[in-house]
Structure formats: C-alpha cells, structure tokens
Simulated scan of single mutants.
Amino acid sequence: MEKRVQFDFEIEFTNGGGLQGQDFRLDINKDDITEEELARYIVEDMRLLMVGEVRILNKKIINEKHKRKTVDKKFE
C-alpha cells in the first residue's frame, strides 16, 4: 500500500513573520519519515529563504495513493 504523511507545520523566518500549514500531505515510499526530513523537504520544495525554526506537529502516516514524486526520492 502506498504511504503518505499528514501533518501541520509552523515556519518562522529570521527577518520576521511566519508560515503555517494544516493537514498538509506528502507522498513517502517508506513506513515513516522524521520531522527533520519533513522540515527540510518543505523549506527546499517551497524555496524558502531566511528560515528560522520549523515545527512539525500532529504527524501521522496514512495509507493513500501517491499524488506526486515521493519525498524520499528527492533526498537520495
């Protein structure tokens, strides 16, 4: 079965402001993914600059068909 991760996130910027996401979903090709991997993926995929703290909240793995290229392939 294909896996996805569903989570909320909060990103603080070093020059002020922030960004939040709720019930965000990403495809993964293994049974779990770390919060650090998710944080890195979000920052790089959105091409964010001047990122301070990134918090991953309410992470859960779900069985659901993949929608796009998996996170793990991007970071191999």
Rank of each mutant, 00 (worst) to 15 (best):
V43N: 02
L38K: 03
E53D: 13
D8E: 06
G16T: 11
T14V: 12
V51M: 05
I28P: 01
V54L: 08
K67T: 12
D31R: 09
L26F: 10
I61E: 02
V71S: 02
Q20R: 13
R25P: 01
E12Q: 14
R40C: 00
E64D: 10
Q20H: 04
G17T: 04
T34N: 09
L26Y: 06
R4N: 14
Q6F: 00
E10F: 10
L48F: 08
E53G: 04
Q6M: 13
N15Q: 13
T34I: 11
D72A: 03
M50W: 08
M1C: 11
D8Y: 01
F7T: 00
T70D: 07
L49Q: 13
V43E: 04
I62F: 09
N15C: 08
F9M: 05
D8S: 13
K74F: 12
E36D: 13
R68Y: 05
N15T: 13
R55E: 12
L19K: 05
G18L: 07
M46Q: 12
H66V: 01
R68S: 12
L19R: 03
H66S: 11
N58D: 13
E35A: 12
G52H: 06
G17V: 06
L19I: 00
V5M: 06
R55C: 07
N58I: 04
I61D: 02
I42Y: 00
K59F: 01
A39I: 03
E37W: 01
D23Q: 14
D23R: 14
R40I: 04
R40H: 09
N15Y: 09
R47Y: 00
E10D: 13
L26V: 14
K3Q: 12
V54P: 00
N63Q: 11
F7Q: 01
E10C: 07
D45N: 14
V54E: 04
F7M: 06
R68Q: 09
E10M: 07
N58E: 08
L38G: 03
E35H: 14
I62Y: 09
G21N: 03
E76S: 14
M1D: 13
K3T: 08
L48H: 06
K30E: 13
E44C: 06
G16D: 07
L38E: 01
K69Y: 00
F75P: 02
D32M: 01
F9T: 02
F9A: 02
K67V: 09
E37A: 09
N29T: 04
V71P: 00
R4W: 05
E35C: 10
I11K: 05
F9H: 03
N15F: 11
L38S: 03
E44A: 14
E53A: 13
G18F: 09
K67P: 01
G52I: 05
I42K: 00
D45F: 15
I56Q: 10
G18M: 09
M1P: 08
L19W: 01
T34G: 15
E53S: 12
I33K: 02
V51N: 05
E44L: 13
N58V: 03
K65G: 06
